[in-house]
C-alpha cells in the first residue's frame, strides 16, 4: 500500500514505475483482442457469406457480425484503460479496413460469386488484415 508519508528511494521509484507501466500496458491490451476477434469474424463472413454457403452456416456467419458488435459495445464500456497505441492507429486502420471492404463489395456486386474460389478467400480475408495488424500493434506495446 502506498502511504502518503513514505520515503521514496530512487531504486524504489524506478521499480514502482516499471510495475505500474507493465500493469497499465497489460490492461490496455483488451482492445487488441477486440481487433483480433473483429478480424476473425470479418474474415469468416467475407469467405463464407451467402450465397457461398447455405443452410445453418449462412445464419451463423451472418449473425456473428451483429453479435460481435453488441459484445464489443458492452466489453469496451467495462474497460478501465485506454491504450495509447490504439489511439494512434484506430483511424488509419479503420480507413484501410473500409477501403478493403469496399473492394470486396465491388467484387461481389460485379462477379456474383456463388461458390468458394481463391478470389472469394483473398478478398474476404483482406479486410481482416488491418484488424489483425492493429491487434498485433496493441499487443506489442
Amino acid at each position: 500500500m502506498v502511504r502518503e508519508k513514505d520515503n521514496i528511494d530512487v531504486q524504489g521509484a524506478l521499480t514502482e514505475i516499471k510495475r505500474l507501466e507493465r500493469e497499465v500496458r497489460l490492461r490496455g491490451h483488451w482492445i487488441g483482442w477486440l481487433w483480433f476477434m473483429m478480424g476473425v469474424v470479418i474474415a469468416a463472413f467475407g469467405v463464407l457469406a451467402p450465397p457461398v454457403t447455405t443452410g445453418w452456416l449462412q445464419y451463423v456467419v451472418t449473425l456473428a457480425v451483429p453479435v460481435l458488435g453488441i459484445f464489443a459495445l458492452f466489453f469496451a464500456a467495462r474497460q478501465q484503460v485506454v491504450s495509447r497505441v490504439n489511439q494512434w492507429i484506430q483511424y488509419p486502420v479503420t480507413w484501410i479496413f473500409c477501403g478493403f471492404v469496399l473492394v470486396d463489395v465491388i467484387f461481389r456486386l460485379s462477379m456474383h460469386p456463388d461458390h468458394l474460389s481463391i478470389w472469394v478467400v483473398i478478398l474476404g480475408v483482406l479486410p481482416a488484415i488491418p484488424c489483425w495488424y492493429a491487434a498485433w500493434r496493441v499487443w506489442r506495446s
Binding site: 502506498v2 502511504r3 502518503e4 513514505d6 521514496i8 521509484a13 514502482e16 514505475i17 505500474l20 507501466e21 500493469e23 497499465v24 500496458r25 490492461r27 490496455g28 484503460v81 485506454v82 491504450s83 495509447r84 490504439n86 489511439q87
Partner: peptide
C-alpha cells in the same frame, strides 16, 4: 510516493 505512482500509471496509457 502517491504522485509518482499516479504519473507512472498514467504515462503509458491514453
Amino acid at each position: 510516493p502517491v504522485r509518482l505512482s499516479i504519473m507512472a500509471a498514467l504515462a503509458p496509457a491514453e
